[in-house]
Lab assay of single mutants.
Amino acid sequence: QSYDVTDELPLPPGWEMTFTATGQRYFLNHIEKITTWQDPRKAMNQP
């Protein structure tokens, strides 16, 4: 797995990073009650 500086940034409020039983990373948004494979920190860093 390649290193990404985004991995060091804190998640936005309400978000949690977790893993499936097979080790795949995904993200939970407790405020909007959604899950996604997309890292919400990457969207924050788009110009």
Rank of each mutant, 00 (worst) to 15 (best):
P47C: 00
G23H: 04
T18S: 15
W37I: 04
M17D: 05
L28C: 09
L9M: 14
G23N: 05
F27T: 01
F19P: 03
V5F: 13
D4S: 11
Q46S: 12
E32K: 14
P40S: 00
M44G: 14
R25C: 09
F27V: 01
E8T: 14
G14V: 02
T18I: 09
P13D: 14
E32L: 15
P13S: 12
Q1A: 04
T22K: 11
N29E: 00
D4W: 05
K42I: 13
R41L: 02
D39F: 03
A21D: 13
D39G: 02
Y26D: 02
D39L: 03
T35R: 04
T18M: 12
W15I: 01
R41C: 02
W15F: 06
Q46A: 09
E32M: 15
L9S: 14
M17W: 05
P10D: 11
S2W: 05
Q1R: 06
Q46K: 09
D4Q: 05
L28I: 15
F19N: 13
E8K: 14
N29Q: 01
Q1I: 14
W37V: 06
H30I: 05
T36V: 02
S2Q: 09
Y3N: 15
V5L: 10
W15S: 02
F27S: 03
D4A: 11
M17S: 10
L11I: 06
T20A: 06
L11R: 01
Q46W: 12
N45S: 11
D7G: 09
K33S: 08
R41F: 01
T35N: 03
W15H: 01
K42D: 07
E32V: 08
P12C: 02
P12Y: 03
D7R: 09
T20Q: 00
R25T: 06
V5R: 10
M44R: 12
L28R: 10
T6W: 07
M17I: 11
P12T: 02
P40I: 00
T6N: 08
Y26W: 03
Q46P: 14
V5G: 08
L9D: 15
F27R: 02
L28M: 15
W37Q: 06
F27W: 09
P13C: 07
T22Y: 05
F19K: 12
L28T: 10
T35K: 05
T22C: 13
P40H: 00
G14Q: 04
K42Y: 09
M44Q: 14
L11E: 02
K33V: 01
E8L: 07
W15L: 01
L28A: 09
W15K: 01
L9P: 14
A43H: 09
L9G: 13
D7F: 06
I34E: 07
T22E: 13
P10R: 07
G14C: 04
I34Q: 09
E8H: 08
T22I: 06
A21L: 07
E16Q: 13
Q1K: 15
E32Y: 15
K42E: 12
Q46C: 13
W15E: 02
G14A: 06
Y26P: 01
M17V: 12
G23F: 00
H30G: 06
S2L: 11
S2M: 14
I34G: 03
E16H: 02
E8W: 01
P12V: 00
A21T: 13
R25F: 04
M17K: 08
N29T: 01
T6A: 08
R25D: 00
H30K: 12
W15R: 03
G14H: 08
M17P: 06
G23T: 00
H30L: 06
A43C: 12
T6F: 11
S2A: 07
S2Y: 07
N45T: 13
K33R: 12
Y26N: 05
Q1W: 10
T18Q: 15
T36M: 04
T6V: 12
M17E: 14
V5A: 11
D7W: 04
M44V: 12
Y26Q: 04
L28D: 00
M44S: 11
